[in-house]
Nucleic acid binder design. Structure first.
Ligand SMILES: [Zn+2]
Ligand SMILES: [Zn+2]
Ligand SMILES: [Zn+2]
Ligand SMILES: [Zn+2]
Lengths: 132, 132
DNA sequence: TACATAACGTTATATTATAACAATATACGA
DNA sequence: TCGTATATTGTTATAATATAACGTTATGTA
């Protein structure tokens, strides 16, 4: 079987909601907000999220336990993610920088281990928060 | 007041245990193992971990919710961490690569945001696991 | 149709982390 | 050495995040 072409009902509902948010959402906040659409239990949300993360439509912000829709239309590389996180207002932006992804994609350390995936999270203060 | 010079009792107990482990430990596994030393509640462990992370003696592996002792004797840069994680055996190694840290430490993206901290996690298969 | 795989629904439970409050200990300048 | 601010401790309860286990239903493909 090929890689999945279309999303299931629950997957669509969750992706829709996360895409509209424009910011990372917590799993239980998603759950609360899609209950009117019929998803009643945490597992229904987590299963949809798992699949959406797997196919790269959604990324998990590990340091925040939160989920955000991929903004890189060309993000075939769901296995190579980088984010900028403001510690003031918690604004999160996906970084789309080809130099960075090339550098990290080719990175090898002394162990000789070749990596198939990475996740990078930068922290700081956004412009707005810096000027407070 | 200066940056703290010496650790408190609970902090020492937790750091000791984590340093002996040579691998990331979960908070509740730490708790279980230091109960004989008098730490009875999760908060006692979490508080010690918080402080140890803050001063760079311990790092948190975000994708695993686990804690590992810093191996870079010179890790003044607890705000600049990079790890290699084997998805087969879960072996985690702290990466100490000056080129990488220089590259990431100076990284700026289009937003003009200057970062004060980053965490990078690489995933793959270690030599052992690749040959299975 | 038949079979394999993916998705679903549901209940219960495991795991990770923090709130809130009161008491002690420690550092350090006056 | 006293006063005071800060850090640390102890404790109970609870919040937040995530998965196990089970049986059913839908979907793709030969
Ligand atoms: Zn993306
Ligand atoms: Zn901000
Ligand atoms: Zn370190
Ligand atoms: Zn391995």
């Amino acid at each position: 079987m090929q890689k999945q072409q279309h999303l299931s009902k629950n997957q669509k509902i969750v992706l829709d909601h996360v895409e509209k948010a424009n910011q990372p959402l917590k799993a239980y906040s998603i759950l609360y907000n899609v209950q009117k659409k019929g998803l009643k239990a945490p597992l229904q949300v987590y299963r949809a999220l798992d699949k959406l993360v797997e196919i790269g439509k959604i990324h998990k912000i590990e340091s925040r336990n939160a989920f955000v829709a991929c903004k890189n239309s060309n993000c075939v590389v769901s296995n190579a993610t980088a984010f900028s996180i403001c510690e003031g207002c918690e604004k999160v932006t996906e970084i789309n920088n080809s130099k960075l992804s090339k550098y990290l994609g080719n990175f090898e350390d002394s162990s000789g281990m070749k990596y198939s995936k990475y996740n990078l999270e930068f922290f700081g203060l956004c412009k707005k928060c810096k000027n407070k």
